[in-house]
Amino acid sequence: MINYMVEGSGTFHVTLQLLNGTFPLPQNYSLSPNEEVVVEVAINSTLDQIKIVINECWATPTSNPLDSTTYFFLQNSCPVPNTYTTVLQNGNSTASRLSIRIFSFVQQSVIYLHCKVQICFETSGATCKPDCIGRTERYKNIIAVGRASSGPIYQSTYWPGNETTESLQDVIYIIMGVLLGALVLAILCLVFYRKRRVGNYNFNFTPKQERFTYHVFGT
């Protein structure tokens, strides 16, 4: 979790963290293309009128938010098509959330997430909630803007620990192959040894001849 200070009408402490449901992701977490991650941006304000709005979010292969390789998944507070992004809450309170399957469309081994945020002061005549259905602009009292980042996030296929795991699996397969070969060789040697020990024998059976005496009686 990386914290930033946003200057505006006063000072706001903005945090961006990644969640698995409601639980923070551990450091150097890895995700598969089908796994969702929740992006939460929050500010430390106790005023009911203060809301935070996520305006833009994007991913980069480095920690530099201005990297030339950029994957936007939220623009103008609305999901970018075909990015598997869902806005869960935005402009409702001091915390906004969205979920995304980031590696379903980003083909990188590691990424960093960045979001541009707006601090909004809500009044009875001006809501802070973005309208992604009607795509209409609503007047919002934006009192500050800022940016927050988080990462790295590894794709599970490329996670550094997997290289060691795959190497260990290769060694195990080699050992199993050698043991299996040794077992087959031992069985063949045992069969050959037993065959030599028994040898080849020819058995000739001569039927025993019996002498029979016959007496014929006339009637």
Rank of each mutant, 00 (worst) to 15 (best):
S68M: 12
T60C: 12
L113G: 04
K195F: 07
G91C: 03
F203Q: 04
V39K: 02
I43K: 00
C189S: 12
G161W: 14
F105E: 05
N28S: 10
L47R: 11
M1L: 12
L179W: 06
K140Y: 00
I2G: 01
G218H: 10
T127N: 14
T219A: 10
F217T: 06
N55C: 00
N44L: 06
S45V: 07
C189H: 05
S77F: 05
N20R: 08
C115Q: 06
Q209A: 14
L18G: 04
S68Q: 15
G218W: 06
T85C: 04
A148K: 04
T69Y: 08
C57D: 07
N200F: 11
Q209P: 02
Q209H: 07
Q17N: 13
V198M: 02
E122N: 06
T213C: 11
T60N: 11
V198P: 00
C128G: 02
N55H: 07
L88K: 03
L188C: 08
T22L: 13
N162C: 07
Q155I: 01
Y154T: 06
V216Y: 09
Q27A: 13
S30H: 12
L16R: 03
T46I: 12
G91E: 03
N202Y: 13
V6M: 08
S167L: 15
E35N: 10
F23E: 15
T94Q: 14
Y139P: 01
L180E: 07
R135S: 15
C189V: 14
P79D: 09
N76T: 10
L16E: 05
Y4L: 00
R97L: 12
E40D: 05
P160Q: 11
T86N: 05
Y193G: 13
T123W: 01
P152L: 05
G146K: 08
P24N: 11
R196T: 02
V41M: 08
N204E: 10
T46F: 12
E210H: 09
V6A: 15
N141Y: 11
V110I: 07
T70I: 14
R97Y: 10
Q27N: 11
P33I: 03
K208N: 06
N202Q: 15
M1K: 11
I54D: 03
I187V: 15
L25K: 01
M5L: 05
C132K: 07
L179F: 12
V53G: 05
P160K: 10
E166D: 06
L16K: 08
Y214W: 04
A186K: 03
E163N: 09
M1S: 13
V39L: 09
S167P: 00
V216I: 13
N141F: 11
Q107T: 07
V110H: 01
I54L: 09
W159S: 08
H114L: 03
T157K: 11
L168C: 13
F72G: 00
L31K: 02
S45R: 06
G177Q: 01
K129L: 10
G161V: 12
H215W: 00
G125D: 10
L88A: 00
W58Q: 10
D131R: 07
Y214V: 15
W159C: 04
Q209N: 11
I100N: 15
Q27I: 14
Y154S: 05
T11W: 02
T164S: 12
N20I: 00
I54H: 02
R194M: 10
Q209S: 13
E40F: 00
M176R: 05
F72M: 02
I119V: 14
F12M: 04
W159G: 01
D48K: 12
C57T: 09
G177N: 03
S45H: 08
I119S: 01
T165R: 15
V216D: 03
I133Q: 14
